[in-house]
Design a protein around this nucleic acid. Sequence first.
DNA 1: GTCGACATGTAAATTGTTACATGATTTA
DNA 2: TAAATCATGTAACAATTTACATGTCGAC
Lengths: 178, 178
Amino acid sequence: MKSNNPTLLDFAILGLVKKENLSGYQIRKVFEETAMGNYSSSPGSIYPSLKRLQKLSLVEQKLNEDTRKSQFSITENGLAALKDWMLRPIELSDVQKNLDELLLRFAFMDGLLDEKDVMHFLESLNIHLISHIQNLQEFLQQTEDQTPLHGRLAIDHGIRSLNATLSWSKNVLHLIQK
Amino acid sequence: MKSNNPTLLDFAILGLVKKENLSGYQIRKVFEETAMGNYSSSPGSIYPSLKRLQKLSLVEQKLNEDTRKSQFSITENGLAALKDWMLRPIELSDVQKNLDELLLRFAFMDGLLDEKDVMHFLESLNIHLISHIQNLQEFLQQTEDQTPLHGRLAIDHGIRSLNATLSWSKNVLHLIQK
DNA sequence: GTCGACATGTAAATTGTTACATGATTTA
DNA sequence: TAAATCATGTAACAATTTACATGTCGAC
């Protein structure tokens, strides 16, 4: 009854080594120095994650002939797992709690999914965003008198933020459809 | 060498019981049913959190005379801790990774901080948001040719999302200044 | 009288954080 | 040759998730 499901960090690493073979240290540097800085770069998270990925045979460690250094590369298994993850149906709870994960999925779709699947992902994202935004607006109206000002403003922030995501998503859809 | 620092969930609960005395179950319901649904409502997180807060004497358990049921209320200590937390200087890393926490801090400021401190919080937030947005834009430009399309679009999402937060914050500042 | 909601917990497993530890290689 | 960076790991601790466990109370 073991879970064996890769964590979000596992997928982040998997997506990175898919694009380019990397050593553990190089992966840490990516998380430290690039816009992916929201993921942990501590050795105590990266190296255990790489072990997990190896145990699941999603990545393998190979010697780079040029640099004589060991690097990780994605396996067939790993590619399939990455694709499965990207094609997972979006749920309302993802939009409520795991927007980061959806964005990470999108960020790695390059060259893995075809245009049709990317569009389907964005369309599904739009539907769930709209639904969640509406829920928040209704909640705001229904609790107008009970909720203190700052609480209402915080919810308003949530709505605005989701609207920004929605308009981004529509924009990207437009852009992809050329 | 123990840390004894309340977690984000601890502060979320502390903020709730500050507004109103609540039982553990009632707290769970808030996280299940309201816009605070991004915080965990599982008994395995709520009850241990309440124990931590009690051990730190930030909340105390009392019998509600009317309902004959036990509820938690915030202590003097708890009020001070909540205030300290809200007055913590904002850092760039908060804007990069912990925007949720900043929003939670704002959401509970009602009746705890005076107008001046709220404004200072928002002004500091603005400064850090602007700085982070600029960093992301520079990163986008510097890596334009190396980063694949989806990666650039994901960063663009980050920028748009932060801009939404910034415009919200400016709006709130305006609103508070009347 | 039974079903659903109220109500409070614990245990195991998982994950991640912080700090520690070690050594090689490069560069000033 | 000393300092910085490269490079990989472990250990202790903290927090959360999931599942289990138990019992009360009100409504139908």
